[in-house]
Design a protein around this nucleic acid. Structure first.
Lengths: 315, 315
DNA sequence: TTTTTTTATAAGAAAAATCAATCGGTCGTT
DNA sequence: AACGACCGATTGATTTTTCTTATAAAAAAA
């Protein structure tokens, strides 16, 4: 049994296809087939059920895949240990970021980070929380930034900052005169929301629900970006909630429509996520400290109440 | 990097010698040297400091060895998983047993076990607790039977039974008339003990010390076997304590000198020990259940107080 | 100094991993 | 039913890797 064989098995298990797996592992398909056959012969079991289309893992096969992932992870860590010893922080690093954090946080720390660690080849992808979790588990992401707490079995969370919600209330709105609003002022039916799939949307819904219970979940209007939401609000279609960092980019002329919450303000917790195997931990730590450094100047709030980003099962 | 290379590294680290490591791994010394050099080249570090005699690990080398042990363990577990799936319980299994448990426990379950699991090649070694711990950590033992609790970082304990101490008090002894003795009756200076290194001896010393404190630790007489202790006691040289199972083998004519303790009787906890990596867990479990089955008939005590087997630092 | 022990190196043999080409089976489509 | 697309297995040549024997070099022991 070799580590290479285990990597081949993982590739086939993930792609459910020998040919694609071969491409991913940069070998030809016969090589892959033979190595996997050799392993199966050695163990005297079948890992894959080739009669199914697409190919499936056998019972024992899926146990082996789990353990193989373990072994390959532990093997990768050897390189980590060496890097750490050499003080080398570099190599490819895949970071996932949720859409509602991406545009505000990224510009704040990115230049800083690549200056400080020029040898790290950062590959950043904007992804919904769900996909982030999948890819962290499969090892296709090295780390991610998302709203927490998620409390997942195999994923560790390291909070970066707490970002309060800020209300955007247009001139003609009923709440316009209220200076410091509270959660109980909120009405979900009057709220402009992001499209489904954004965890910030789920956070807002959770927040409003702590107040009242809505059976009917037909929301008035939804959009894919905060900018659109603000514009819709200006048109008198309702109010909306924004994460604090987004309010820093708003036009001066519109800043007067921002209303902060009475403390403790509702807030989302934004964390650095990584797999419990703690691979590439030096880079993760470098990332965390860089972000912590730049965020300190931007967010000074203390007294906040964390709103869960998890979508609640309705009906 | 290959698993084979890691195994070679482990062998050299353990033997501190390329030639011996080569023998242990069943390859020639040049093979070993070259493979290790290849790994060192690939990682671009030195694992071994060859200038020292005997050879030493570098700083980074010892970290790599730790991780390598990890990887090799996890890799071995693949075979475990397959065996479990096939319901196969077999292969070589190395069991360590402490001297004071060996002669009484082994005959009770051994025949039973080899009948039930004929494919397991049991290799049993009588070893002191200290050596058992070392070998479990290095993976040279698959499991062991020893007195607990030891509370060690990398070793799990699964209690098998609680074996009360029984006093052997010869006719002319001061305590001879006392039927049920108590711990406070004991006097370490009057106690015949096993030689240094036996954990049962440490248990007895601990037990007596709960009673009084002795500054002077010059014990009267020591011996390597319980049989000798009994004979010495018969000669009027003092009393002694025996583990319960040993009292079953005593001559009928001497049984009258056995005195049980008042409940809760002091007892030692005898456990199955294995490495936390839980390799060969099916065999370990088979062993445990077999022993548990035979011991149930022999030991029915309930109300006991466990005496630590750990030697206390004196002076 | 000589001998012994121990690791490194060199060269050839054996084993293995890989590739290009191709086969054979299973789909879905026409 | 015939065709083509897809997919994994097989074959045979080629390259790469691993291992061994033989030997050199260095260090330690005598």
């Amino acid at each position: 049994m070799t580590i290479t064989q285990l990597k081949y098995v993982l590739a086939v298990a993930e792609n459910q296809n020998f040919t694609k797996a071969a491409e991913k592992t940069f070998v030809t398909q016969p090589t892959l087939s033979m190595q996997i056959q050799k392993l199966e012969d050695e163990l005297d079991i079948l890992i894959f059920d080739r009669s199914k289309k697409p190919i499936e893992l056998t019972d024992i096969g899926s146990k082996i895949v789990t353990q193989a992932r373990n072994i390959v992870n532990e093997a990768n860590r050897i390189a980590d240990i060496v890097d750490q010893q050499k003080g080398f922080i570099g190599g490819e690093f895949k970071l996932g970021v949720i859409p509602t954090v991406m545009p505000t946080l990224l510009p704040m720390f990115l230049r800083n980070f690549i200056n400080k660690y020029p040898k790290v080849k950062l590959k950043i992808e904007e992804l919904p929380t769900e996909t982030i979790i999948e890819r962290l588990n499969e090892g296709h992401l090295d780390a991610a930034i998302a709203a927490t707490p998620l409390q997942l079995e195999n994923i560790k969370e390291r909070p970066l900052y707490y970002e309060p919600f800020v209300a955007y209330i247009p001139e003609n709105h009923a709440l316009h005169t209220v200076q410091k609003i509270t959660v109980s002022d909120l009405d979900l039916n009057d709220m402009l929301l992001l499209e489904d799939g954004h965890c910030f949307r789920d956070g807002v819904v959770n927040l409003c629900k702590t107040n009242r219970n809505y059976e009917d979940e037909t929301f008035s209007l939804e959009s894919g970006s905060f900018e659109t939401l603000v514009r819709l609000a200006n048109e008198g279609l309702g109010m909306t909630l924004l994460p604090y960092l987004h309010t820093l980019d708003i036009k001066d002329s519109e800043k007067k429509y921002l209303h902060h919450f009475k403390e403790p303000a509702p807030a989302r917790e934004v964390s650095l996520l990584y797999h419990k195997s703690e691979l590439k931990m030096q880079i993760i730590e470098a990332l965390r400290s860089t972000i912590a450094g730049v965020i300190k100047g931007a967010i000074t709030f203390q007294n906040v109440e964390i709103i869960s980003p998890l979508p609640q099962k309705s009906r």
